[in-house]
Amino acid sequence: MSDYNFAYLDEATKRMLRRAILKAVAIPGYQVPFSSREMPMPYGWGTGGVQVTAACLVPEDTLKVIDQGADDTTNAVSIRKFFARVAGVATTEATAEASIIQTRHRIPETPLSEGQILVFQVPIPEPLRFLEPRETETRTMHALEDYGLMQVRLYEDIARHGEIARAYAYPVRVQGRYVMDPSPIPKFDNPKLNMSPALQLFGAGRECRIYALPPFTHVESLDFEDYPFQPSKAADQACAICEAADSYLDEVITDDTGGRMFVCSDTDYCAARVAARQGDAA
């Protein structure tokens, strides 16, 4: 512990980050610029999420880190270890026990509760970016609620594919005001953003942006009246391990002859269900 300042960042940096977070909470869905620091990991590995987490952590916190829903992948393990070392906080894999959860590309299946903080790692915070390359223009569009272009993108999907083809990073409207990129979570997770009791924070390190959804914020996925939003998932089956039919599944290739299985992407959820079943059996 004496080797590092608590949670790695110096106190002035954490103060800067907390100010940005407070502003983001005050204006739900609005991208607040912040002065992103060099972190001991490459961009794209969650530098934004790590900075937001570092700014939120207090010694009493219990941290959970997931990558694509899993607690045991390289990214998740290394970030968890990082904070265990530089902040000395307790860590967990159980969603319900965590006070802060840093996530890449998923929202846990277990419903979050009041007092929890969910920190998203965001690669590209600007939902209008691939439609309008100029930052000055996208900022003006947000300021003036000029969101026709966003709808054009969905229109193009239907014209081309017969449906809104975005399966992840599906754009949402926050409290009827800002259009927001929910980070590359599957659209299956979009309904969990809405009216969540947890505080949801989004950090984009390379792009230097923080945005937030305070607890119980209204979050609506964009759609058309005649093509309403469908929070569907690719495989309409049950998990091969825990038999859950209501969770988001990953496809796992099991051999090189086309063998495959679908399993819960949320490893904690899956393991808890298996444990509960074994408990019942015993």
Partner: peptide, 27 residues
């Protein structure tokens, strides 16, 4: 024009910008 958006999307953009949200009508 938006060169990477279909003709229909180009024409529909102004409609969507003023609040049209029915794909069939816009098209």
């Amino acid at each position: 024009l938006r060169m990477n958006v279909s003709a229909g999307g180009n024409v529909g953009e102004r409609l969507m910008a003023v609040g049209a949200r029915h794909y069939g009508d816009i098209r």
